[in-house]
Design a protein around this nucleic acid. Structure first.
Length: 721
DNA sequence: CAGTCGACTATTTTT
DNA sequence: TAGTCGACTG
């Protein structure tokens, strides 16, 4: 049995063995927050509290899985750990008969949501000229995070814009219900509504759990906090862990007041503050402390450490983003060769926005440095995966109009937009789903005989799947769908790289289904269960941290992680802090917290970089170093300046050697000329538009199937003879 | 009906 | 720059 006292410091131990009642643990970065939570859960089980009577909630599925594993290791007990979303989904499925949704409801992700919103806008004749679908999505999400339903929203309209939003919101909610689908934020809101409207069910869950524990409490939103308050209302055995300085999800409705008000909401709550950092070197910690102390709106807290001073922070001022990438690669090599203990998976590159990874990926690939990029177009957002999953969704839930529309002509089967619109109009006039309309295709007089035939054939296919559903495992069904619709042959049969990766991805989807069939905690694995898992899975959940490669990810993804070597790139004004945050002081403070989170991930070595030039929206712009850089005292940093330039802010030295530059200046490119490109190799210029540096060259490279258009200034071409 | 071409717009961050 | 959307043509 674990000796809890021996493995924890006195404050951590106090938190772990704290008896019943509300407990707030304010835990600074690297102070052993997860450790405390894990040990506390483990400790509860030793107090004869059954694992199933503990409700533990973390921020990601990955963190949840890891915590469950660690508890198991400590006390040999399996305590299920959830995210708010997965917990709510489980409740909603279980208590389905109290909901207006049928039990096979699906979860809509962001892009399903946008499609549906566009539909609603079209139906209400709302132009997307000034009110973008995304804007509506944001409004709805925020409303749901505050538990404001469409009905409530409509009650407090004060201007025209709100009125439009209210109308679309109403239409959207109705459409969701009709499609038997919930969006992400519904999972929480519907669960809260369920509890609020059904006291017997609420009571059941209040009695089911003796203790509730919440990780990353600073990033909970109003709906989540309300849910927690409801659940623990009887026994008040709630333990929350968080750090206000690490609250970085305001855009998702996270409300820092949750943690600041906790002691007020739960009278008699105990507070334990953990301030000793075990993770980082003193230098890293000092720098992070200095940065965060610039936030005005914050509770004073100073982390300290007994760790060694460590090396200085490296700040690299690059010429441009290419130079920045080269620096990171070279620096990584330097670190690796001087340190045999170090492995590539000890190294991470953080960025504020995904767009920065493009250039890095290029350079990493060319340098043959193994790397993994998290996020951006995640696995389940790839077209081929979405296509197949759309079939599964319709098979599971025939009311799903959004996905029905997606699959009716994918792969092409001659059911074009005219036919689809006729079908949709028919469905609307009869107030039935597209699926039902398609079933009656033959009685829709506006459809041509040919169109009817094609729809009937398609419906036979789909109904075949629906009938097969109960007889097959998830894996078998996925395979059957892919085979029967001939997806690979019809959509990705060429031999180019893109199609080959598509096929790889499809294989991976089959593996994912197999994995679900084999390891799911669902009593009976089902296509619905698989779809729910898919809907709630995130990039970080699928990240394999033991792979021998450098990881690139956003700082938002880095929450709760730590790495020996950390790079933060793009430390420039309007990028970090981000442009959209630069005029609002509260937003700037959130950006600063984000910076703080990034820095405090580093155990040994932290490097920051910015570029003097960067191509933004395809245009080369002069950049200014981030204000955060100037918030670091000089004594902690070692500044390195790009060799391509003498001093920062001095006259720019051209990135390409003089000879090439002068050729550009002469406007020396002309059609028919043979050239060499560093990337694509030999090619022939087919045409030239414009002149000088901004000339656009259409070049047919020998290595590529199609011509490419490059801008002379950036193309870095060398003329042949 | 499907594929191509040009115009346009976009970058926060995610369960 | 690159990805998406709509118009146009075969």
């Amino acid at each position: 049995m674990t000796d809890f006292k021996k493995e924890l410091n006195p404050l951590q131990y106090k938190a772990v063995i704290h008896p019943d009642g509300p407990l707030l643990i304010v835990a600074g970065a690297g102070s052993g927050k997860t450790r405390v939570l894990t040990y506390r859960i483990a400790h509860l089980t030793t107090r004869n509290i059954s694992p199933s009577r503990i409700l533990a909630v973390t921020f990601t599925n990955k963190a949840a899985g890891e915590m469950a594993k660690r508890v198991d290791k400590l006390v040999n007990a399996y305590v299920p750990v959830s995210t708010f979303h997965s917990f709510c989904l489980r409740v909603l499925r279980k208590e389905n008969d109290r909901l207006p949704y049928a039990d096979n409801f699906v979860v809509y992700d962001k892009s399903d949501q946008l499609t549906l919103i566009k539909d609603c806008m079209r139906r209400l004749n709302v132009s997307d000229k000034h009110t973008k679908p995304k804007m509506f999505a944001n409004e709805f999400n925020h409303a749901k995070n505050k538990l404001i339903t469409a009905g409530k929203f409509a009650e407090k309209i004060n201007d025209y814009k709100k009125e439009v939003v209210a109308n679309v919101y109403k239409e959207y909610e109705a459409a969701l219900l009709k499609a038997n689908a919930m969006d992400f934020d519904d999972l929480i809101m519907q669960c809260v509504l369920l509890f609020q409207n059904n006291s017997d069910i609420l009571e059941k869950y209040q009695n089911k759990f003796d203790h509730m524990l919440i990780d990353e409490f600073q990033d909970t939103n109003f709906a989540q906090y309300t849910l927690a308050k409801l659940l623990v209302d009887k026994h008040k055995n709630i333990c929350v862990v968080g750090d206000p300085d690490q609250s970085i999800y305001k855009f998702r409705g996270a409300d820092i007041r949750n943690i600041l008000d906790f002691e007020h909401d739960f009278k008699g709550a105990d507070l334990i503050t953990l301030e000793q950092n075990y993770r980082s070197t003193a230098t890293v910690l000092n720098v992070a402390n200095d940065i965060i102390s610039n936030n005005k709106n914050r509770k004073e807290k100073k982390l300290w450490t007994e760790n060694e001073e460590g090396e200085q922070i490296c700040v690299y001022k690059a010429m441009d983003e290419h130079d920045e990438a080269e620096f990171v690669i070279n620096h990584i090599r330097e670190q690796m060769s001087g340190n045999p203990e170090l492995s590539l998976n000890d190294i991470v590159v953080f960025h504020r926005i995904h767009a920065l990874t493009r250039v890095f990926e290029d350079h990493f690939r060319r340098a043959r440095m193994p790397h993994v990029i998290l996020g951006d177009v995640g696995f389940y957002n790839r077209r081929e995966i979405r296509d197949i999953v759309a079939y599964l969704r319709v098979i599971a839930n025939q009311a799903d109009d959004v996905n029905f529309k997606r699959i009716i002509n994918t792969p092409h089967r001659g059911i074009g937009s005219t036919t689809q619109e006729t079908l949709a109009r028919y469905a609307r006039s009869c107030n039935i789903t597209l699926f039902e309309a398609a079933e009656n295709a033959e009685s829709v007089s506006n459809l041509s005989k040919a169109a009817q035939r094609k729809i009937v054939k398609f419906m036979q296919l789909i109904k075949g799947f629906c009938n097969a559903k109960s007889k097959l495992t998830t894996t078998e069904l996925v395979k059957k769908v892919i085979d029967d619709i001939n997806y690979i042959e019809k959509v990705c049969s060429s031999n180019d790289l893109q199609d080959r990766t598509r096929i790889e991805n499809i294989k991976e989807l089959i593996s994912a289904a197999a994995e679900y069939d084999n390891t799911s905690e669902d009593e009976i694995p089902s296509i619905e269960g698989f779809l729910h898992e898919v809907a709630l899975s995130s990039d970080i959940d699928n990240w394999n941290e033991s792979e021998e490669s450098v990881t690139l990810m956003t700082i938002h993804n880095a929450k709760g992680l730590e790495f020996p070597v950390v790079y933060i790139i793009g430390m420039e004004e309007n990028l970090f802090p981000h442009y959209n945050s630069s005029d609002d002081p509260t937003d700037i403070e959130e950006e600063r917290r984000l910076c703080y989170v990034g820095m405090t991930r580093a155990k040994k070595r932290l490097s920051l970089s910015c570029a003097y030039h960067r191509t933004v929206f395809g245009q080369r712009k002069v950049r200014e170093p981030s204000r955060f850089l100037s918030e670091i005292p000089d004594e902690f940093i070692e500044v390195r300046i790009s060799e391509h330039r003498d001093s920062f802010g001095a006259e720019e030295v051209p990135p390409v050697p003089k000879s090439k530059k002068s050729q550009n200046a002469k406007g020396g490119y002309s059609a028919g000329q043979r050239v060499v490109h560093s990337h694509f190799g030999n090619g022939k210029i087919e045409s030239v538009t414009g002149k000088g540096d901004s000339a656009r060259l259409t070049i047919q490279f020998d290595s590529l199937p199609n011509p490419k258009v490059l801008v002379a200034q950036y193309a870095k071409l060398r003329s042949l003879k």
